[in-house]
């Protein structure tokens, strides 16, 4: 039986849904599962990690691991992978996963694949599928190494409604700090906003909103819907939105039930981050804007006129 180690995604003391999604896929493949969690003050998460579908929980829990640092965190993952004798190590889609996965692959002498959307066994070998070239193609890839380290694209695997798991915690020794790339501080730029990755509805703003007043208008639509509030890179570059809100190839990949793109042209790099949404609505004054090629419902019009009316209509149906 193949052994799959999933690296837990933890935010503010909560195990995120991606962990359960990955463990569900691992179990569906018939694998033995374990999870590794790294951080500080996470000792209480054993039952949550088991409930997410793991049968062993490796915990690196130490004050020195309070802030993400790719080198030491990767060491914890490597330690767990060796103890578990993992055939595969899977990361959820995250900046930390992207930073750790090649490190872990080198140290385990494994193959490395980022952004995978499918994985299967074919004639005893592992095959994966992943997008490349800004989503213009998919690659089907056969892994020729015995081991694979992979980052799974957001939304690729579904969480099972029922999933078995047993509590079997194993404590790891914390590694030494990386003094040559020393983490000093994390400046949070998102505040208490709804996390884009977890949001059921995402409203995103583009350059069509022009200025801070336009951004505020679109944000009020997001607030009415209790939606995550995202952005194009253009608005991040212009300083109107924080990096953490960028949707697209270099930002967050989202796949909500409803994505509302306001004043967004639909560049391929933006589409790469939201094309998996179930329903897409676009508001753009240019009828030729490429965003309309992917939108289920496209509203051709000036967002400064359309958004206030959308807000009113939504209030009517949401009362």
């Amino acid at each position: 039986m193949s052994k799959i180690l999933v690296v837990a995604d933890i935010k503010q003391g909560v195990v995120r849904s991606s962990t359960r999604e990955l463990l569900s896929k691992a179990k569906a493949l018939g694998a033995e599962t374990a999870v590794v969690a790294v951080g500080s003050g996470i000792g209480g998460l054993v039952s949550a990690l088991a409930a997410a579908g793991s049968d062993t929980q490796y915990l690196a829990d130490d004050p020195s691991l309070a802030l993400f640092s790719a080198g030491p965190w990767a060491s914890c993952v490597v330690d767990a992978a060796r103890r578990f004798e993992a055939d595969m190590v899977w990361f959820g889609f995250s900046e930390s996963g992207k930073a750790m996965s090649p490190r872990v692959a080198v140290r385990l002498d494994a193959a490395c694949a980022t952004d995978i959307i499918d994985v299967s066994f074919v004639d005893g070998a592992v095959e994966i599928v992943r997008p490349a070239i800004t989503n213009k193609v998919l690659q089907r890839i056969r892994i020729l190494e015995r081991k694979l380290v992979a980052v799974v694209r957001a939304g690729a695997f579904q969480a099972a409604s029922e999933i078995g798991g047993t509590e079997n915690p194993v404590r790891l020794t914390p590694p030494e700090a990386d003094l040559r790339a020393a983490i000093r501080n994390i400046v949070s730029d998102a505040g208490a906003d709804i996390d884009l990755a977890d949001a059921d509805i995402v409203v995103s703003v583009g350059r069509g909103a022009k200025d801070a007043a336009g951004v505020a208008l679109v944000k009020s639509l997001a607030d009415d819907l209790k939606a995550g509030f995202g952005s194009t890179r253009a608005m991040v570059d212009a300083g109107f939105m924080p990096h953490s809100k960028q949707v697209g190839q270099t930002g967050k990949i989202v796949a909500p039930t409803l994505y509302i793109a306001v004043g967004i042209s639909g560049a391929i790099q933006h589409l790469a981050g939201m094309k998996g949404s179930k329903v897409i609505v676009a508001v753009n004054k240019d009828p030729e804007a490429p965003i309309f090629n992917v939108a289920d419902y496209g509203i051709v019009g000036d967002l400064f006129e359309v958004v206030p009316i959308l807000k009113q209509e939504i209030q009517k149906v949401r009362k």
Binding site: K11, S94, S96, I183, I186, V187, S188, D189, S244
Partner: peptide
């Protein structure tokens, strides 16, 4: 990073 800008 995942939760903001990391300074190193």
């Amino acid at each position: 990073g995942d939760f903001g800008t990391e300074e190193l």
